[in-house]
């Protein structure tokens, strides 16, 4: 990734993360992105500019439209979201170990 700080700042905004989530299913135009987010096209365009500047999306020219798609850097960002879920669940299951220990006292015998 060219500019990690720019990417992190770009990802800090929930609308921009939602736009990336939508683009995970495939290319979309500004008009297609504006609709589900109930935003004006200029507002969406501003978000897209930030994402493009951070190297998270790529745009191509097709007549008067400029469809967007995820850049490889964004795909690795989505992998980072998976790490966050992994950490949250790992914490849960470590606590569950303690709960289980109170349900099944092991009398010092090795188990598992």
């Amino acid at each position: 990734m060219q500019n990690l700080d720019a990417a992190f700042s770009a990802m800090a905004d929930p609308t921009r993360r939602a736009i990336l989530a939508r683009l995970a299913t495939g290319e979309a135009t500004v008009m297609e992105l504006a609709k589900p987010f109930e935003m004006t096209q200029p507002a969406v365009s501003r978000h897209l500019k930030v994402l493009e500047g951070a190297g998270l999306i790529l745009r191509r020219v097709e007549g008067t439209k400029r469809p967007c798609r995820l850049a490889p850097a964004a795909i690795s960002e989505i992998d980072r979201w998976l790490d966050v879920l992994r950490q949250a669940l790992a914490g849960n299951y470590d606590r569950l170990d303690d709960v289980l220990a109170t349900m099944e006292p092991r009398d010092g015998k090795a188990a598992g």
């Binding site: 700080d5 992190f8 990802m11 800090a12 993360r17 989530a21 995970a24 998976l82 966050v84 879920l85």
Partner: peptide, 25 residues
């Protein structure tokens, strides 16, 4: 679908699961 999965993962960020974004923001 893939977008729903990405959205669910991104949603986790909203709730303090990753403070680094909030700090950078």
């Amino acid at each position: 679908d893939a977008a729903s999965r990405a959205a669910m993962l991104a949603t986790g960020m909203e709730h303090g699961m990753d403070d680094s974004y909030a700090r950078l923001d």
